[in-house]
Design a protein around this nucleic acid. Structure first.
Lengths: 209, 209
DNA sequence: CTCGTTTTGAGGAAGTTTCCCGATTCGCCG
DNA sequence: CGGCGAATCGGGAAACTTCCTCAAAACGAG
């Protein structure tokens, strides 16, 4: 038999770390080599341990899981990283794939699915949960904002005015107004506050960072 | 020695259930008697098992942890329920205490703290994590909105216009404008979209339901 | 190359929000 | 009782947003 798959857990919730470590220890082909509760420690441990797979929580104190993923991949382009998140918005998955995550699973999946996800990430195969694919497909049929509209929406949701938007993005106010109207039409709302509510609820954009 | 403390875990994340169950099984005085992944199953199991303590996740598919807590307490007023949440907003804790939760812990605390929380809930003592108390105190010093302003803010965040607000709450538009201006002043913002962003980020109000 | 989409832009009318001024009522606390 | 904060209401001017029409450059797909 081959060498065991060496795993690093990154999660700020002690209970999740405990659950994951238990699940891993029950598998003869998996081996837990380290645990980190924040991004800095994760990077440090990655450098010294060089694990085969990292299970990374989406939300972490300080730089979030996506940022840590990007940081690790910048240094180790062949790293295998499985993002675990309670969020299932399209924007989250998109950000994750952009950052170089090998897989993205919702935390509501069964433990067995995480284990099989780890094995597939170890083989550098992409992993996305069935539920996520459904949601992505469903969302694709819905909003479907253009990249520029997303830029505008992300700032809009943070409370920027048209004037601020235009200087933030280097556009004329007319253009900003145009994009905003397109966003309203696609989200089916009448004003920016509703757009914010809908966008955040559907996970089109995230508010926290 | 006394009978063991009988525990029911309610959480939709399999990994958290696994972690909690492991932590509980390591304690000689604690006994896991059931696990539920949703509110309906939780109520069902509570009726048949009558556990001493329920550890309840804040967010669940369908009715959330607070609603399930209220449902259990309506039937069993002496139930001991420990809410576990990733959210630390004042509004969440407030809703939890109103629903009759015995304690409220952030999921970012250590496992030992959850275990000691379970023991204290078993003794029907209130449990709130140190971090939460700090945050609550900090928030108390901050916004400190009046009840009426909170009513307005909750609707504002969902994208209602001044006109809608006035009919929703049975007020004149003048009064609504007045409340909104007070909210802006207390949150330190200039417009309703910023107010939405700040309120959601700080957990003053929740958007999901 | 042509078509459709995206992105950019102008301008204006109508409606809404923000920011002021003012005022009355109510209940609570010292 | 007097004062104080909360909640209520009115009005108005300035600013901003929404909705509309029109237009053009850039770009990829077919």
């Amino acid at each position: 038999m081959n060498r065991k798959i060496r795993i690093l857990i990154v999660d700020d919730h002690a209970m999740v770390r405990l659950g994951l470590s238990q699940a891993i220890e029950r598998q003869p082909d998996l081996e837990l080599v380290g645990e980190a509760a924040n991004g800095a420690r994760a990077l440090e441990l990655y450098r010294s341990l060089r694990p085969d797979v990292v299970t990374m929580d989406y939300q972490l104190p300080g730089p979030d899981g996506v940022a840590v993923t990007a940081a690790i991949r910048a240094e180790f382009p062949d790293a295998g990283i499985l993002l675990l998140s309670i969020y299932e918005g399209q924007d989250d998955v998109w950000r994750a794939t952009q950052a170089g995550a090998t897989g993205y699973l919702s935390k509501s999946v069964e433990v067995a699915e995480v284990i099989s996800g780890i094995r597939r990430v170890a083989a550098r195969q992409a992993v996305f949960s069935a539920g996520l694919k459904e949601k992505l497909a469903a969302r694709q049929a819905g909003p479907n904002l253009t990249p520029r509209e997303l830029d505008v929406l992300r700032l809009l949701v943070r409370g920027r005015s048209n004037k601020e938007l235009s200087s933030d993005l280097g556009l004329s106010q007319s253009t900003v107004k145009h994009h905003i109207e397109s966003i309203f039409a696609k989200l089916g709302v009448q004003d920016r506050t509703q757009a914010t509510a809908v966008a955040v609820q559907r996970g089109v954009v995230r508010l926290e960072p």
